[in-house]
Design a protein around this nucleic acid. Structure first.
Lengths: 192, 192
DNA sequence: CGGATCGTTGATCAACTTCAACGGTCGTGG
DNA sequence: CCACGACCGTTGAAGTTGATCAACGATCCG
């Protein structure tokens, strides 16, 4: 499972053999069953987690108790309540496993140490965050400008794999729509 | 104006005297009048720009020609169509100056060279992007979960300075609301 | 088998938008 | 230096999109 992380890092930066052997000790392996929490709101998010296998979702709960999904995390993705992790404040997000999941986690403190010990990791995370910002910018644009139908169709086009793997009600939540609305949109576009 | 950038960088990382003297040559100074474009959609975003003075907005236009503001950039902020800048694809955003503005800009190529020549800049941008992600995550949560009134009131609380400086119709656009709705919300909350 | 989960459909409802009109202020060019 | 136009904020009335509420069938899993 550690090799998933290594190859993910080596996609972005070059690691020496020394880097590779040092890297591993910063991370702890963790397994989650379906529906198991990685983080609950109110707690401080202690770890940044790399998904080596499985699938999770992060979401906030509104006053009525319904979920608003902020992201899915597949193999090769990182997940946390990022504000809580970086600033060590209370988490507003919950994170749990949609499928059985294997994680490699690093604490806030070790995250800082990692960059000091292996400076190229600054570059790795710089590039990772750079790409992540592009994605978030796009998603913000979708929320700020698109109709329900546009939201769903662009998502379905860009992410056919996710549509397959994740129940529609979760996709609805991710898009800021109700399951009913998504169902009706799917019906409508199936006529074409 | 260059010292604004320097002090912004030194808030996050330590620079040597050598770093500082080398840094300047990567950047070009640029001035914009009110309403002047920095970028128009369809063009490739050549530069990442640091605002040393003034205020800009970036926005997309919908099919009806109305603006959807994706961000404001004040002194000390960076702005670009980030996807266009990073991937050198066509921009979907327009950027123009709300006030008279002074910028320090760097090209895509020089941005890469900068990191190679001054590796601590990887760390700088890693931290910059890290903070930026926290902000974008929060904004996504607002879009995904909040009502119009909640959007406005949380924005007003967190950004009293922006409310002062930017016309309400632009704030409405930033929040994904109409100016009429914002006006009505303001009226409503003024009763309290 | 029985309960939980998921997707679907219909009817009603609420939030926010759209359209239209108006008054105030600012700044710019004649 | 004044007048005019552009821009901004406000208000009212009507319209629309998507949410809510309720019910039902299908499937999956323990």
């Amino acid at each position: 499972m550690f090799d998933v992380l290594l190859s993910h890092i080596e996609d972005k930066v070059d690691l020496t053999e020394k880097d590779k052997s040092e890297l591993q000790q910063f991370f702890t392996c963790k397994k989650l069953r379906k529906k198991q929490y990685l983080l609950q709101e109110g707690d401080v998010c202690k770890n940044l987690s790399f998904v080596s296998k499985g699938l999770l979702k992060s979401y906030m709960l509104d006053e009525k108790g319904s979920e608003h999904i902020s992201m899915f995390a597949f193999e090769g993705w990182w997940i946390s309540d990022f504000n809580s992790f970086i600033n060590q404040e209370k988490a507003v997000l919950n994170i749990d496993a949609i499928e059985e999941t294997e994680l490699l986690t690093i604490t806030r403190e070790e995250y800082e140490n990692l960059m000091v010990k292996i400076p190229i990791m600054d570059r790795y995370f710089r590039i990772l965050y750079q790409n992540s910002l592009v994605t978030k910018d796009y998603r913000l644009m979708v929320f700020n400008s698109f109709t329900a139908e546009e939201k769903y169709t662009q998502f379905a086009e860009k992410n056919p794999d996710i549509i397959q793997r994740v129940p529609h009600n979760l996709i609805a939540s991710y898009l800021g729509l109700t399951p009913e609305t998504v169902s009706r949109i799917r019906k409508k576009i199936s006529f074409k």
